[in-house]
Structure formats: C-alpha cells, structure tokens
Design a binder for these strands. Structure first.
Length: 261
DNA sequence: GAGAGTGTTGTAAC
DNA sequence: GGTTACAACACTCT
C-alpha cells in the first residue's frame, strides 16, 4: 500500500498498512455511499467513502491481462496527481484511490465499529426493505423541507443531490415543498420515482458530471438522462417550461416550474 | 484576477 | 429538534 497523502486515511495509516499487508478482501458491502471491504475473517473492514470527487479505479495486473479478463483495462494515466492511496495486489493489479478535492477517506474498522456506523444509515433504495409501505412510514414521521429530508442519510440513505432533484422531477413535486404538505398520492409518486431513478441510474452505471468513474474508470451514462440537474435555462422535456435552479437547503436545487408543484 | 459554485457530510451556532 | 453556515479542498466557470 502506497499512501501518498496520509490525511486521506482516518486513523493510523501505519496500522492500516500493516493490517492490509498479506491480507485479502473476501467480501464487499455497501451502505448508502459507504463502501465496506471485509478482510479475511470478516472481523475487520476497510471503509471507503468517495464524497464528491473520489474515484476508485482498479487496474488489472499483467497476468490477468494476458489471461484475458472480462473488462477493458483502464486507459488513463495512473497513478495521477490525485492518486492519494494505492493498494497493490499480489498479481500486479492495483486499486487507485483518486480524489481531487480530498474529501474522501479510507478507514479501518472492526465489526463493532462497522455495525455502529452502518446503524445510522436510513432506509435505502435497492435494499429489500425499501418498500412503499416502509417509505410511507418513515416519511410519516418527518416534517420540514422535502429536499433536506431526502438528502439526510440517516433518514434515507444513498440519495445525493442529483438523484433527489431528478426523483422530485419525475414525481412532479417541488423539492422546496415540506414533507407534511405532501398528499398520499404525492408520497407514493415520490416512492415510485426514487425507485425508477435509482434503478435506471444503476443500470447506466451512474452519473458523471465531472469526475465520477466506475471501478474500470468508465464514466456513468445516466448523465444523458438528467431532466433537471445541470440543465438550468434549458427546456423541460415534459412541459416545455424553462428549468430553474435555486439554492435551497444549502444545495443547488433544480426543478421545472411548469410541471412540478 | 476575484468570487461563486461544485456530486458530501460533520460540526457549530442560532 | 430544525435550519443555516461553514469547514474540509482544488478546480472550473462567470
């Protein structure tokens, strides 16, 4: 392991290094936007958060490339000036943690710590318990700005600024509404929209605005599907009105004033 | 060149 | 408690 920018490591970089040395990743989990890479024995895990601009890129080893592997090798220059941590594998493969803004982190955690951290995450799209019934129940207990509630990882986890704006668009609800003002029908539309947006975004391997790439270094294709995010001043594809952007709940917030209410 | 804004989240202040 | 401002940071855009 090569730690080029120690502050990216939460806790001791030395202990992390020693722990990873000769060890194996045996299982990969995710909770919200947090990656959980379990080590041999599953008593410890490497937690990785990419925050805004983090990238985790896997480069195949020469042996794998010679043997033929299912994915194309990453073409870009690696490491680059944003490669702050590099994990090297025995077969010559490497995992690069790149992060322009340096907000992301790597952290070693034991089973209890992982349990404590993940227990704070809320109902999550993509998990089995993200049902309409559960969604409505969680929403029922909340009040205040819809956008803020959807972004709150302790209430619903996994949704970020892009998918919240897009989900509100598809539900035809303004993100500036309060939760308590939403009718039963609107709440159900919102649930459906979130499921639809997340499912399609995953299918298209995410959304690249600037830096996001998947483990193979490829950009996400959901960017082409965005209806409001990043489209301020453009025409709404549903009603023809002009997409607006405001600052709301501390975040850039995009919506169509013509067909979101 | 200055200033605002950027996909996240934790903390502090009100 | 909710809300807001701000912090972390480097870069792009206006």
């Amino acid at each position: 392991m090569d730690v080029r920018l120690p502050k990216i490591i939460r806790g001791s970089a030395e202990i992390l290094k020693t722990t990873l040395e000769g060890n194996q990743f045996v299982r990969i989990d995710r909770r919200g936007k947090l990656l959980i890479l379990w080590l041999s024995g599953e008593q410890q895990a490497l937690l990785i958060h990419l925050k805004m601009t983090g990238q985790l890129i896997y480069r195949h080893g020469k042996e794998q490339i010679a043997g033929g592997h299912p994915w194309p090798a990453f073409e870009g220059e690696l490491p680059n000036k944003y490669s702050h941590v590099i994990l090297e594998f025995e077969d010559g493969a490497a995992l690069f943690f790149n992060d322009l803004r340096q907000f992301g982190f790597l952290q070693l955690a034991n089973t209890d710590e992982v349990a404590l951290i993940t227990s704070k995450y809320g109902l999550e799209p993509g998990r089995g318990d993200f049902t309409e019934e559960n969604f409505l129940e969680v929403l029922q207990k909340k009040r205040g700005k819809l956008k803020a509630v959807l972004l709150d990882q302790t209430i619903f986890s996994g949704l970020g600024n892009i998918y919240v704006d897009e989900s509100c668009f598809w539900a035809e609800i303004l993100p500036t509404r309060t939760v308590e003002s939403l009718s039963e029908g609107e709440r159900k539309r919102l649930f459906t929209a979130i499921v639809q947006v997340i499912d399609e975004a995953i299918l298209l391997r995410g959304t690249t605005v600037h830096d996001y790439v998947d483990a193979n270094g490829n950009r996400g294709n959901y960017s082409d599907k965005l209806q409001v995010y990043g489209r301020v001043g453009e025409t709404c594809q549903r009603c023809g009105a002009t997409i607006q952007k405001i600052k709301f709940a501390g975040r850039g917030t995009h919506f169509c004033p013509g067909c979101q209410f």
